[in-house]
Simulated scan of single mutants.
Amino acid sequence: MKSKIRQHTDALSNPSGSRAFLSPASPRKAPDVIALTAMLPTLLTVQLNKWCKRIFFSLLALMVSCSSTLAASQSVDIAVFEDHDKYVDAAIGYGLSWKLLSLAAADQDIAFVTQPSAWSAAIKRVQAHRVSLVFGAFKTKEREAWANFTYPLYAEGSAIFTSPSNKVSTMSDIDVVNSTIGVSSHSVQETMAKNIGFENIYSSRARTRLYTLLDEGRLDYLLFGQSIVSYYCLNHAKRKQRHCMKQVGDVIMPDWVRALADNQNPEAVEAIRKLNQGLRNIKDTDKAYQLFLSYGLNDSDYQRWLETLNSTISEN
Score class of each variant (00 low, 15 high):
Asp220Glu: 13
Ile313Lys: 09
Met245Lys: 05
Val251Thr: 08
Lys86Arg: 09
Asp109Pro: 02
Leu36Thr: 05
Leu60Pro: 01
Glu199Thr: 06
Ser300Thr: 14
Asp89Trp: 05
Thr42Tyr: 14
Gly197Lys: 06
Arg19Asn: 09
Val176Tyr: 11
Gln74Ala: 03
Ser203Glu: 15
Lys283Gly: 02
Thr208Ala: 11
Val257Lys: 03
Arg28Ser: 07
Phe112Asp: 03
Ile228Asp: 15
Ile92His: 05
Ile78Trp: 10
Tyr295Arg: 05
Tyr231Gly: 00
Ala79Arg: 07
Leu22Met: 12
Thr9Asp: 08
Asp77Glu: 15
Cys244Val: 07
Leu101Met: 14
Asp85His: 09
Leu60Lys: 02
Ser185Val: 03
Gly225Asp: 13
His243Ile: 04
Leu306Cys: 00
Trp146Gly: 01
Phe135Val: 00
Ser58Met: 10
Cys233Tyr: 05
Leu36Phe: 10
Asn178Val: 03
Asn310Arg: 13
Met192Val: 02
Leu219Thr: 04
Gly17Arg: 13
Trp146Leu: 00
Leu70Trp: 10
Ser117Val: 00
Glu307Pro: 00
Thr285Arg: 12
Arg28Cys: 02
Leu62Asp: 07
Ile123Asn: 05
Trp119Glu: 07
Asn310Ala: 05
Ser73Thr: 13
Glu82Gln: 15
Leu279His: 05
Pro24Ala: 11
Asn14Met: 05
His243Leu: 08
Arg207Tyr: 13
Val183Glu: 12
Ile160His: 07
Lys124Asn: 10
Val88Asp: 10
Val188Gln: 10
Ala72Lys: 14
Thr42Glu: 12
Leu309Thr: 05
Ser185Ile: 02
Pro266Phe: 08
Thr9Cys: 06
Gln108Leu: 07
Asn178Ile: 03
Thr208Arg: 15
Cys244Tyr: 09
Met253Tyr: 08
Val177Cys: 00
Val177Tyr: 08
Asp262His: 12
Ser3Asp: 15
Ser203Pro: 01
Ser187Leu: 06
Ser163Asn: 12
Ser187His: 10
Asp83Leu: 07
Leu219Glu: 08
Ser73Phe: 14
Val134His: 09
Leu133Val: 03
Phe81Val: 00
Ala145Asn: 09
Tyr151Gln: 04
Ser120Pro: 01
Met63Tyr: 11
Val76Trp: 08
Pro27Ile: 04
